[in-house]
């Protein structure tokens, strides 16, 4: 089971804070996109098209990363911390 967290604008698209998917011991990014598309095809496409960053276990990763069972994945829209 992997957990996928959604933040900020992506949480509003997903209409939820997180999902849990059963993807087996190791899964490709495309498998992850397909799972996310079950919640929102728009979000799945955004990940495929690299419009959002993806972190695995709190480190930003590249699209060739293999997702392991138990991983915490997060979809991260562009950051905007700091001052106004």
């Amino acid at each position: 089971m992997i957990t996928v967290k959604y933040f900020a604008s992506l949480k509003e698209i997903a209409k939820k804070e997180e999902d849990q998917f059963q993807l087996g011991n190791s899964a490709s990014f495309e498998q992850l996109c397909q799972a996310i598309s079950q919640t929102s095809p728009t979000l799945g496409d955004m990940v495929r098209e690299k419009k959002v960053m993806v972190s695995v276990n709190m480190d930003v990763v590249q699209p060739d990363t293999i997702i392991q069972d138990g991983d915490e994945v997060a979809l991260l829209p562009p950051f905007s911390g700091g001052l106004a």
Partner: peptide, 15 residues
Amino acid sequence: AIAELKRTTPIWKRE
């Protein structure tokens, strides 16, 4: 540090 914070830290702002 402030430039790097804005680039690397997962914090989001809604206006």
